[in-house]
Design a protein around this nucleic acid. Structure first.
Length: 106
DNA sequence: CCGTTGACCAGGC
DNA sequence: GGCCTGGCCAACG
């Protein structure tokens, strides 16, 4: 059972606000909500809602993909899923990283 | 209570 | 651009 508290809900709201074809960073969200970047990652890893919320639209500050937990597991497989979702959204990739042009601030 | 562990980040080289 | 370091701070055992 994942209970959604206030902070979590704010994070998820911001996710839904990211334009199609764009992504944002953990640090950006953190700053927006006055949190530590690590706390944002923690929230997403513990309360991932891969269907309802586009948590895949969050990448590291340098554009590289991290984590992406599905059903409590994080591995190369889930990482591929994340990349595919981003590609499908029209996000531009530069090697294995998201191009800076696709990273937007919320 | 303490040490370890992260879906991080900025700065220095 | 990549690698390393220090800082960060809640959660866990």
């Amino acid at each position: 059972m994942n209970e959604i508290n206030d902070v979590d809900e704010k994070v998820y709201r911001l996710l839904q606000r990211i334009p199609k074809g764009k992504v944002t960073t953990y640090g950006n969200i953190a700053q927006k909500l006055g949190l530590n970047p690590r706390q944002v990652g923690r929230i997403l890893s513990k309360n991932d809602h891969p269907i309802e919320y586009p948590c895949y639209k969050v990448v590291s500050s340098d554009g590289s993909l991290c984590g992406y937990t599905i059903n409590g597991k994080t591995n190369s497989k889930t990482l591929i899923v994340k990349r595919n979702k981003l590609l499908k959204d029209g996000v531009i990739f530069r090697n294995e990283k998201v191009s800076k042009a696709s990273i937007v601030a919320v």
